[in-house]
Write a protein that binds this DNA or RNA. Sequence first.
DNA 1: ATTACTAAAAGACGAGTAA
DNA 2: TTTACTCGTCTTTTAGTAA
Lengths: 215, 215
Amino acid sequence: MDIISLKKLALLGAHNKPLELSSVEFASYMDSSQQTASRKLKALEDENLISRQILSDGQLISITKNGLLALQKELYDYQEIFSGNGSNKILSGKVITGLGEGQYYISLEGYRKQFREKLGFDPYPGTLNIKLDTQSIELRKRITGHIRISGFTDENRTFGKGSCFNVRISDIEGAVITPERTHYPEDIIEIIAPMNLRNHLDIRDGSVVQVEVIK
Amino acid sequence: MDIISLKKLALLGAHNKPLELSSVEFASYMDSSQQTASRKLKALEDENLISRQILSDGQLISITKNGLLALQKELYDYQEIFSGNGSNKILSGKVITGLGEGQYYISLEGYRKQFREKLGFDPYPGTLNIKLDTQSIELRKRITGHIRISGFTDENRTFGKGSCFNVRISDIEGAVITPERTHYPEDIIEIIAPMNLRNHLDIRDGSVVQVEVIK
DNA sequence: ATTACTAAAAGACGAGTAA
DNA sequence: TTTACTCGTCTTTTAGTAA
């Protein structure tokens, strides 16, 4: 994702109203060739970060909802850096039953290997799904999953990439996993841990739990 | 400048206290190879954005003052995007006499050509230097020069790059030029315009002027 | 274990140009 | 004028490996 180009377009005002901008002008702002500018605009469009209307004498560029979300995430990251707030964030919500997809995905060796290496534990084959309360949904938006999980391909299909961040739930350290999909629900988190959390913590659907985000 | 790597280091806490991080760990956070991670850390160090202490089992990484400034600039950009503030910024200060360097530089064809193309006017060979008041110094820090001026090399030496942003002073549209140098004073701006501003506006050293930042 | 060099592969870039 | 393709070149990345 070319956040630098997207940011420039936003600074030029493309987040408010359609921006008239030719590839030559954009090239001048980006200090690149017209060709590169054109290619970058096209790439942003392909990623659904901007939408364009190409005219005979230039283009009308608007930043999409998706693009705005990406920029907002970036803002949150920088705010986080300068917040000077050492206290850990706490997400709260209720335990729900997921679709069972998580169980399938995390048991794939392509992901499991990465969890072992990057998180330091072998996950129990199942996820604890939590429906966040309203406040926690907002808080969750501001958290970037630092730990990147790469996608991979087996003989049949492609498995997408994602990210994680470490959490503590009661005395257990686990991680929230987020697939990098376009329409992943923002009100639900999936937690993996070294053991079955439902058994270990004696919780069931509807139980209210608090999840502390740790570094 | 690799702002993405620098941001990641800051999010990992390298802006508060020295961060223990091996190139392999950083590679995992950046989803790259160890070699690339190592090279990027080295590059950030070479640019004086981080300082490092390389140990036998990893490194201690701190973000330098310079690095923090770069991150802050980025924060300001994103805040600007989401500020929803349509009103134009106004910088104010007093006219002073510069070192006369500006006159020399802007008359070089390598720069002048770019001013004509990117600003739309041929600058009068001289700059109006303004010493900003305290408030304006802060405001100025938050402005990114959108218009990039490339460096170039003639037979004798290399001329650095820089950036501009458009301003209006009374009825004249000109631009503030900022060389991309490490120790450029933050309390002075240099304005170029199509004509001699001192004559046109009848101002002299000590005159208080207001400069409106325009898009 | 580390960091980081070299060499080769992969990717990005800009000149020329078609539409 | 535009946008954006191809293609040669330059830059960046990674694998292998030395220190």
